[in-house]
Design a protein around this nucleic acid. Structure first.
Lengths: 125, 125
DNA sequence: CTGTATCCCCAGAGATACTG
DNA sequence: CAGTATCTCTGGGGATACAG
C-alpha cells in the first residue's frame, strides 16, 4: 500500500503485526528473552491464565514465523524446551522504539498498566 | 510482566498493539502520513474495501488514542479532514525498526506482499 | 458528504476433559 | 509433562440501508 511519509512500505508489517498482536505472543517472546529456555508448563505459569490450547496454538505460530524454536528430549516424562531464535531476539530489539514511544504516551496520560510494572523503565531513562 | 532481556517493560505495548493491530489502522496512519490531510471519502477509497462503519470506528479509536485529529468545517455539504497529530507522526518513526526487521524477514522468505510494494525500501531515512 | 443504525458472521480465544 | 479434542462464546469486522 505505497509508502508512508518516510518512504517506507508498510506491507511487511502486516505479517508481523498479525503475529505479535496475538494474545500472549509478546509475553512469550519476552519471557523467553528473559529466561533463555523455558518448558511448556513454565510458560503456562508465567502466562497466568492461558489455556493449554491457546498456548500450543501460539507456540506453533511463533515457530512457523521462525521466532522461537522447540527442542524435545526423548525422556520419560517428556521434556520440551522453547527458546528464541536469532530472529526472535532481533524482534525484541526492533520493538524497543515502539515501547519507548508507548511508554511516553502512558506517562503523559498517567496510566499505569500494572503495579508490577511500575518503577520499570529504560535502564537509562 | 516484568522486563525482557533488555530491561524493558512490555506492558506499554499492550495498548498500542491493540490499536495498531486493528484492521486498516496502519493504513490510515500511513495514508495520513503520506497525504497530510484527508477527508472521509478519501480514506474510504484509499482503504479499498473498508465499510463506513469500520472506518468511523477506527477513526474514533485513533482519535481517542491521540494519533489523529479531526477537523470539521461547517459547510454544506459537510467537509471533514483528518490528519496526524505529532504523536501519530512519532509513531510512524517508532515503527520503522520494526518494519525494517519485518522487511528483512520477508526478503529471506522471498515473499512478496504485493506488487505495488516491490522495489520499495528505505529511500533514505 | 459524512457518517449512524442494524444485522450478521466467523475466527480467535477460553474452559474442560482427556491422552501418549 | 506436554500436549489433543471438543465445545462454546465473544466481539471485531463487514454489508446494507438510511439520516443530517
Amino acid at each position: 500500500m505505497k509508502k508512508d511519509s518516510n518512504g517506507v512500505c508498510l506491507c511487511p508489517l502486516e505479517g508481523i503485526i498479525t503475529t505479535i498482536s496475538k494474545k500472549w505472543a509478546m509475553q512469550v517472546i519476552s519471557a523467553l528473552g528473559h529466561h533463555n529456555r523455558l518448558r511448556f508448563n513454565d510458560l503456562m505459569s508465567i502466562l497466568d491464565g492461558v489455556s493449554p490450547k491457546s498456548l500450543t496454538d501460539l507456540l506453533k505460530e511463533l515457530q512457523k514465523k521462525g521466532l522461537i524454536r522447540r527442542e524435545a528430549f526423548p525422556e520419560v516424562p517428556p521434556k520440551v524446551e522453547y527458546f528464541l531464535t536469532d530472529d526472535g531476539k532481533q524482534l525484541c530489539e526492533a520493538i524497543i522504539p515502539l515501547i519507548k514511544w508507548a511508554e511516553k504516551q502512558d506517562d503523559l496520560r498517567q496510566e499505569i498498566c500494572n503495579p508490577t510494572c511500575k518503577s520499570t523503565s529504560y535502564s537509562s531513562k
